[in-house]
Amino acid sequence: MALGLLGLAVAGCGGFENGPLGSGTVRGRIVDAEPDVAMVSVLGRPELRAGVSQDGRFELAGVPATSVELFVVASRTRAVRSAVVAQGARIVDVGDIQAPPGAFITVRVSDGQGGVPSRAEVEVDGTVLDEIEVDATSGEVRVGPLPSGCYELKVDADEVDEVKEDVCLREGEELVRSVILVPDGDGGEDDDP
C-alpha cells in the first residue's frame, strides 16, 4: 500500500489538456455573396479557409483562439477584412458581413530586357491569393479583389530571384505595379533588405 501511495504521489492519475482550448470556430454570413467565388480565410493563415453556402453563410473551424483578421472575398469584385477575437472551444458569430468594392493590382512582369520570365507567378502573402500565373504573352496578371489594407506582394518565376513588394490598397483602387525579375546569381533586386 505504501508503494502504491508512493507511486500515486509520483505518477498521479489523470491530467489536464489545454490543447482543445487553443482554437475555436468563427461563423457568420456574407451579404450578397457569390457562392461560387466567395470564401473566408484567416489572414496570415490561408490554409484556414472556408467557402460559403448559397445564402452566404460560412463557418470557419480551427481558428486560433486569439485576435485574428478574416480575409473575406464576397464576390468577383468585393472583399473585406474583418477583425474578430476567436474563443477557445467556442463558436464566435460575427453576424452579417458587408463587403465593399475590393481593390485590384495589375502586376506587370519583365526580365528587364523586354522579355517575360518563364512561369512567372504572383502571390499576396498571407492570403488565399497565391500561385497566380502571369500571362506569358502580356506579362501581366490582375489580382483581386483585395480588401483595403497593406499586403506583401511576392513575384517569382523560373530561374529568377523572388521579388517582394509591400503595397497598400484603398477600397476599389486599381493599382498597377511593374516588377523586373533578375535571373538567379546576378544580384537581382529584392525588396527585402
Binding site: L8, A9, A11, C13, G14, G15, F16, G24, G88
Partner: peptide, 20 residues
C-alpha cells in the same frame, strides 16, 4: 476535477494524487 461545457468541448478532466 475541471469541467468544460463549451460550444465545441464538453469534457471533464480529473487528476488524483497523493502529495507530501
Amino acid at each position: 476535477q475541471r469541467s468544460f461545457q463549451l460550444d465545441l468541448l464538453s469534457r471533464d478532466e480529473r487528476y488524483v494524487t497523493v502529495w507530501p
